[in-house]
Design a protein around this nucleic acid. Structure first.
Lengths: 140, 140
DNA sequence: ATACTTCGTTAGCATTGCTAACTAATTCCC
DNA sequence: GGGAATTAGTTAGCAATGCTAACGAAGTAT
């Protein structure tokens, strides 16, 4: 089962990713922006942790987002080492537009499913969310 | 729901990918090898289509696999433009080992779930497999 | 036989992941 | 107070993976 779920997840994401081309951003940039939009302002290290990526990688992603004026970098009051990352209005708008596209795409393909199947998927999403949360802290 | 499933899939894969480091292969190489092992020998274009990737990309991935003697390239009898790609014994062994690791990792984290939750996930995997298969041919 | 199509490769670009090494700022400890 | 250790972020450089454009070789069609 684990393997089949893994495989299904891979192929699902490959499909959905194509919709993101419209945003003009790469997947990592889009995902980081999403965390900033929905999670609120945070530091670079925190964002890197949230995205399961190393700080240098996130540093580069944020630089690209800042260049496009989608994210704002301000200095942290109280600790000059830290930076405060915040999605700009433009970033929020772009993200919400892309999100609508993705959801519409997926939802369109789920339309053919029965009500039971939809609720089965919803339940699976909940189970996965909980499982992921619970095993998030431990181990490498 | 679509968005939550999408997000869960992303985070699940991020976790699982870490186990694949042990194989020494990148995710695309591993995935391509998997298709060859489970789907049998095929041409490059077919493999690229199966992996939702353009031919030049797959050409490079196969070249890397061939360099490591995990895949064999033989000429097609009857059409000299085509090549026949086949996983070597070494490739099969490596893939099966990695597969065991991934399954053990995921299964380990699913162990805490109840029987109902497990069957819900299994059902979701089936639904996704069917949905993906049905919408595979159409559109970009 | 010439033109078109198909298959795979090469070249070159952008993105994204990493580690190593660096700077700057803060904290710890004597 | 002052030097050492820690922490936050960046820079440099590598590898893998995605793309398009352009090409050669082989097969098909007119």
């Amino acid at each position: 089962m684990a393997d089949r779920l893994h495989s299904a997840a891979i192929h699902l994401l490959r499909r959905v990713r194509r919709q993101d081309v419209a945003s003009g951003l790469g997947p990592a940039q889009l995902s980081a922006l999403s965390v900033l939009v929905f999670g609120g302002p945070m530091g670079l290290g925190q964002l890197a942790t949230a995205e399961q990526v190393r700080p240098p990688t996130m540093s580069r992603i944020v630089a690209a987002l800042a260049r496009q004026k989608l994210v704002e970098r301000t200095s942290d009051a109280g600790d000059a080492r830290r930076i405060r990352l915040r999605a700009t209005a433009r970033g929020q708008k772009l993200l919400h537009q892309g999100r609508r596209l993705r959801i519409a795409y997926l939802a369109g393909h789920f339309e053919k499913l029965s009500a039971e199947e939809l609720s089965a998927l919803r339940k699976a999403a909940e189970i996965l969310e909980n499982t992921l949360k619970n095993w998030s802290e431990r181990e490498t």
